[in-house]
Design a protein around this nucleic acid. Structure first.
Lengths: 347, 347
DNA sequence: ATGATTATTGACAGCGCTGTCAATGCCGGT
DNA sequence: ACCGGCATTGACAGCGCTGTCAATAATCAT
């Protein structure tokens, strides 16, 4: 049996040189279809996996991509990692995690230091880090390739995300169509771009339905359960309480539901509740929470693919003229969302 | 300014061979104090950081530890990763993730291949992989260091976990003390050792309280929400329904609560519900779910520390006699759990 | 058919480091 | 002074892979 299949074994088996195997592994051009096929077969048969260390040493790359994240929720991170890892695995890349303390004063320095020591070939930025201008600036200046997920960020640098505003607007319209006129909204933290977009979508739906905006129906939260509780206590304490509350994420929505129960309200007949993110908890709550589903796994996958393309693009790029390297386009890719309508809004 | 200071630069600067620099970097013996000092200074001055890739290639070590996991829940993995990363970071180790398809027929081969290509210096096994005898055997035979978390596994190989049986027993006792006599139980998947232990704890508490065991009050699940729903439908459909249900994890407990609501039962007055794991959802449910909290982060941290100790232990170990290498002790460390009593059992 | 291109392939030299082993310097004992 | 023995050091050969570049095969224009 022996555990080690090296590039040599593959080359021997396929009857080619190791360099050709290397070409196949790296998807390089100029390999005939026939040869590629033969090599691919040998690779599969020997279950050959290239050694990251050797590739890194020889190629000057680390074959590592870094994932930077703050205090995002576990389910978000889990899904995201799944998506990223799927692409990483098929492209033989490794993933290096870097959880940062968002509130660290020298966040950029921390990140830069980590980049220097880990040497990832590219970086994926998860929210809210993608919204941190100083960080994005530092990254841009350092020249490292990066991409933001699930947030358009400040517009500089590429990203993969959904149309948050449209999603929020659509969910709000759903509420309005169910007959609600007094709609409460729980905002997310102000420094998240997506918080703002979700709020904008909410407002847009309101004005589209000619419902006047009522400031007393807006509360602020920080995306955590407890803040949802506080927000709901505020929104539901007045006499003229809303008949529906749209919280800008599921955790806060579950907080709203908690308070509703405490106050003896029945969901959805006394109060409809909607969330955002389709975290697992939204199914587990009673009644099931209507929410917006982002394809987080696909987002991670797509972002990784684009990042890797960007990385390998560099190689073929500098072969051309000696002109100034053109500034990388800050293209962003928008993936579709989906409304998950459950019992919490079915009134 | 140039970015890269290699071992050569350091060697030149210190006026020694690169091998000596290597010795200093690796804290190897047999370097005179004077030389060591000189080299250390050069290293500091040049801000030299050894290349992980090169060290890995040449030395067979990677300064990476691997985390193997199956379809564990995101919150579990998130917590675990946090704990592991904390230790990793301070010891300058990296973390490589390897999500495996549990049902893959050639799981061991997959894992071995991954080990070969990634070359982690040690591996952390999260449940239920730690319970997979074939896998543990393969790992044992391959000689790689590993440690299981949150599961005693099959008893071979070290592990860090809580006393699952005692925890389940204590939670059951809590239910009994609240006056319940007809206690339902939702088992986890049979191939998880911890499922069995939790069930054993439940049974032990029953017999300690002289409550006869009633097979019709036991249902089987697979740790997922839907299976909790099914189990509850089964348990709550009979005439003589239980007054309390203890599900062996939180997700299934939330399924039980769902069914209870559907049937118009009030929790906890009509039915008390308890879970296991203290996942975030247990707080968010209404009413709050009583559950058992494992210190997952600490488990991850402790496991990593022990794994690293084990790894560095090897180097100094084989310097001794030429006798047979003694079989590594399968020491396991038991961390304390905590009962989180919330409203779902407060009758 | 012939030379000119272009596509395909392989030989070879490292990447930065560590393991091995031989070389050197230094100690005490006689 | 001479020798064994140990502490210290360096020369050298890779680790498994990629980049470079030259060699060969295939294709095209004339």
């Amino acid at each position: 049996m022996t555990s080690a299949a090296t590039i040599n074994d593959v080359a021997t088996m396929a009857g080619v040189s190791i360099k050709t195997v290397s070409r196949v592994v790296n998807r390089e051009p100029n390999v005939s279809e026939k040869t590629r096929e033969r090599v691919a077969q040998a690779i599969a048969q020997l279950r050959y996996k290239p050694s990251l260390a050797a590739r890194g040493l020889a190629g000057g790359r680390s074959f590592l991509i870094g994932l930077l994240y703050g205090n995002a929720s576990d389910s978000f991170l889990g899904e995201l990692q799944r998506g990223i890892l799927r692409t990483c695995r098929e492209r033989h890349y490794g993933l290096a995690l870097f959880p940062v303390a968002q509130q660290a004063p020298d966040l950029e320095a921390d990140v830069l230091e980590w980049i220097r020591s880990t040497q990832p070939d590219g970086i994926i930025l998860s929210p809210p880090l993608s919204d941190n201008e100083a960080l994005v600036d530092a990254l841009l200046k350092s020249g490292i390739k990066f991409i933001s997920v699930s947030s358009a960020g400040t517009g500089r640098g590429p990203s993969v995300h959904i149309d948050e505003a449209a999603a929020a607007q659509q969910m709000t319209r759903h509420l309005i169509e169910a007959g609600h006129r007094r709609l409460g909204f729980v905002k997310g933290p102000a420094d998240h771009v997506c918080s703002c977009l979700r709020f904008e979508g909410f407002c847009a739906a309101l004005s589209a339905a000619d419902i006047p905006f009522d400031d007393s129906l807006i509360a602020c939260g920080d995306f955590h359960f407890d803040s949802g509780v506080e927000a709901a206590e505020q929104l539901l304490s007045g006499l003229n309480r809303p008949t529906a509350i749209f919280a800008s994420n599921d955790d806060m929505a579950s907080g709203v539901m908690h308070v509703a129960y405490q106050k003896g309200l029945t969901i959805p007949s006394d109060l409809a509740v909607a969330g955002f993110d389709d975290t697992p908890v939204s199914r587990q709550l009673w009644p099931g929470l209507s929410t917006v589903r982002q394809p987080i796994q696909s987002i991670g996958q797509t972002a990784t693919e684009r990042l890797l393309a960007d990385i390998s693009g560099v190689k073929n790029e500098n072969s051309g003229n000696g002109a100034e390297p053109k500034y990388r386009r800050a293209e962003s890719e928008i993936l579709p969302f989906e409304l998950m309508l459950r019992a919490s809004t079915k009134g």
